[in-house]
Design a protein around this nucleic acid. Structure first.
Lengths: 218, 218
DNA sequence: ATGGGTCTATTTGCATACAAGATGGATGCC
DNA sequence: GGCATCCATCTTGTATGCAAATAGACCCAT
């Protein structure tokens, strides 16, 4: 939506989304229209439109006449989000195994191998970025825009709840090993294998999140 | 979203969505704000918010400063939508096989058996309604709100492109037979089987659509 | 006749103004 | 002292008005 001539509402939507994803706006934070409006130097009208847009994406919750807050989820709901994301990723991986072009497959492998280096070097930051690109490549490889978009959307939504997953000891190398299984399955066109491997991988990410959350709660 | 105190924008969103789903607003139809506004006896403000909401759901396309139209898809995009829906349904079925409660399973079976009667009686209309409920029950059975919602959303989006699928000769009975495989797999907790059976089923729906579209084009 | 350009009219985008519902505190009552 | 009620205030929802951009028509020139 809105490629080149972003309207104010669009810009606000991405700005607010960035705020949420960067952690500046924590789950539960109230988003009052007036505040956002003068904070961005605009009127309430585009703010309201941006909020409505974000509400549909799930990043924020709006209740009629009660305002909007950054989506705050119960542990159950977070769990659901992780499961949903795992399923979407697995589905994309499955389709990617079927649909990826030879070029895409080569690029995926190259990406994967580059990440092995980063993992061994313990470059958490760089690995994390590469990881996003890696998963994005698989979404794209599904050659199915709706699924890829939704997978990306879910990834964004879980973002606020999984920050710093790679800080769990040894997660980097294990992540890369799991990727290896995914990549092998995709490259060999093994749809079911890709599905299973990705499901396994993302489920472990969830475990890592829980481990991290637990150590932080303590 | 917005359960009890729907705002005008919410009501408009559902009204317009209904118009699209019912076929009153065909793909490609221009949605000018002023027209919709006075047609519903409101101002442009809630109309704009409703449109933005619908745009995020994919039902309409908005281009900045160029207005909104009912989503018009190329055959490729329609194909993608069908594939996406098939995958989502299959995923929900997989999770349903794992997560459904005994009560849900019994109800699903009851639903399914009731539909067998309708199919044999050739009650296209009633079967179609029951079919929506049947698939909805499986979405719900996944016990995963994000996935269920998205599956429902996709079902809505493909709606305008699949109207009257059951008009293909003999589709009713075959649909019910396919459901049988799905139900059996879910009831027996066979996750992979449920996935495969549902994928098969929904893919055939797509074929039926194509057959229908083809006969109409001729 | 066709292509380009300008001008007008329509439509979208944004701001402001107004209305109505929700929230929180003070007040009165038990 | 606790609790319910009422009122003030604040926030959201809707309408209207104005500015800017787009699209379409018309005209002119080649």
């Amino acid at each position: 939506m809105s490629a080149e001539n972003p309207t104010l509402a669009d810009k606000l939507a991405t700005a607010i989304a960035d705020g949420i994803l960067s952690g500046a706006l924590k789950p539960g934070t109230r988003l009052d229209e007036m505040g956002l409006a003068e904070q961005h130097g605009v009127s309430r009208t585009p703010v309201r439109e941006a909020l409505r847009q974000l509400a549909m994406s799930g990043l924020i919750d709006m209740r009629p006449r009660k305002g909007a807050i950054v989506s705050k989820a119960t542990p159950d709901q977070v769990e659901s989000l992780f499961v949903a994301m795992a399923e979407m990723e697995a589905t994309c991986a499955r389709l990617a195994a079927i649909s990826m072009t030879p070029i895409e497959r080569r690029r995926l492998q190259a990406r994967h191998e580059a990440m092995l280096v980063l993992a061994n070097a313990g470059q958490t930051e760089a690995y994390s970025d590469a990881n996003v690109a890696f998963h994005g490549a698989i979404y794209a490889g599904s050659h199915n825009a709706p699924l890829a978009e939704y997978a990306m959307n879910l990834r964004r939504r879980v973002g606020p709840f999984r920050r710093a997953q790679f800080q769990v000891e040894g997660r980097l190398v294990r992540s890369n090993q799991e990727h290896d299984a995914v990549v092998r399955a995709i490259l060999s066109g093994d749809a079911a294998g890709a599905h299973a491997a990705m499901l396994h991988h993302v489920s472990l990410v969830e475990d890592a999140f829980e481990a991290f959350a637990a150590t932080n709660a303590a």
